[in-house]
């Protein structure tokens, strides 16, 4: 099981959230099996895995909605406590609000349940409603809002109490592209302002784009963990792309004789090379001898490929 032990620069500080050998069982079904992970402060952490792998259970444990059978959850280096919930913001996968309750009242209620005083809650709601231009919704009932509006409201409610750890379960599901982009930029902004974000998602493109670290959970076990860039490098299989001007046949022949597989990229002056045995420099040398090289890229496997490979392998 390849687990890259990543030691990035963010890891110097205590992780904001850590799981140590967490086990959870429902009846005879193991849902989490000795799960450990460390979520570095200030990072965006991806929690990946197929449906039913145990992600939601882990997230619920982190939110203290359920308790682990054994193992330990640490928050900022000490045992996770009840009043830590004031520092955690949670957007569940299945979202919902009181349909008959007015928007403003509802935001105020949920903020106060997180422990904000009435005045603080009021001030922050006004700030967020201004920012998302949702001020005119105040006296509307939730059921009168469109789906997209409800999702915006739900996100505002999640972050109102300025949590230092945001746990988002499938935050992009059901969002239209415009709102998804808005959400993405808000998540990035909150991270830049010092929050840590843990997100569970099936959208691998957004993992590559946003996440610094990931844990891949399959069948209740963690099967891959670490820094995204590092994992992709580790899983590289010697794929390169060369852009050039000159004699393509000569280049192809030269590469073939050195044991590389060449495939056409579909574009003129661009080919793909599969060369697990060769280094980039060696390939570049070969190429320079035949053509004028304009670009040279190593193609890293996408998270999508890695995900599928890891999950389907025996």
């Amino acid at each position: 099981m390849p687990v890259s032990q990543h030691q990035g620069q963010e890891m110097v500080a205590t992780p904001i959230l850590a799981a140590r050998e967490v086990n959870k069982q429902y009846g005879n079904t193991k849902v989490l099996d000795h799960l450990s992970m460390e979520v570095p402060r200030g990072s965006i952490y991806g929690l990946l895995g197929p449906n039913g792998a145990g992600k939601t259970t882990f997230i619920r444990i982190a939110n203290q909605i359920t308790a682990p059978d054994s193992g330990e959850m640490l928050f900022q280096g000490r045992r996770l406590q009840r009043n830590d919930i004031a520092q955690i913001g949670y957007l569940p996968e299945e979202r919902g609000l009181y349909r008959k309750m007015k928007v403003g009242e509802q935001a105020l209620y949920l903020a106060r349940l997180k422990g904000l005083s009435k005045a603080d809650a009021w001030r922050r709601i006004s700030w967020w409603f201004d920012r998302f231009e949702t001020g005119s919704w105040w006296n509307k009932k939730v059921e009168e809002l469109s789906k997209g509006m409800q999702q915006k409201l739900q996100f505002i409610i999640t972050v109102l109490h300025e949590p230092s750890l945001l746990i988002l379960d499938e935050p992009f599901s059901g969002f239209d592209p415009v709102n998804a982009e808005l959400l993405k930029s808000e998540i990035m902004r909150l991270r830049d302002n010092g929050a840590t974000v843990m997100l569970s998602t099936h959208n691998m493109a957004s993992v590559e784009e946003m996440c610094d670290h990931i844990s891949l959970i399959n069948k209740s076990k963690c099967i891959l963990q670490g820094n995204v860039a590092q994992i992709r490098r580790e899983y590289k299989s010697g794929e390169y792309e060369i852009g050039f001007t000159g004699d393509e046949t000569a280049l192809t022949e030269a590469l073939n004789t050195h044991g590389c597989t060449v495939s056409n990229s579909g574009l003129p002056g661009k080919i793909k090379i599969h060369a697990p045995e060769k280094s980039g420099n060696q390939l570049l040398e070969l190429a320079i001898a035949c053509v004028k090289v304009q670009s040279f890229n190593e193609i890293l496997p996408s998270m999508n490929d890695i995900f599928i490979r890891q999950v389907t392998q025996k």
């Binding site: 909605i65 919930i85 955690i88 949670y90 569940p92 299945e94 979202r95 919902g96 349940l113 422990g115």
Partner: peptide, 11 residues
């Protein structure tokens, strides 16, 4: 309504 999960993450 599925709001219960939001609430039990607070209380």
């Amino acid at each position: 309504n599925r709001i219960v999960e939001v609430i039990v993450s607070s209380v």
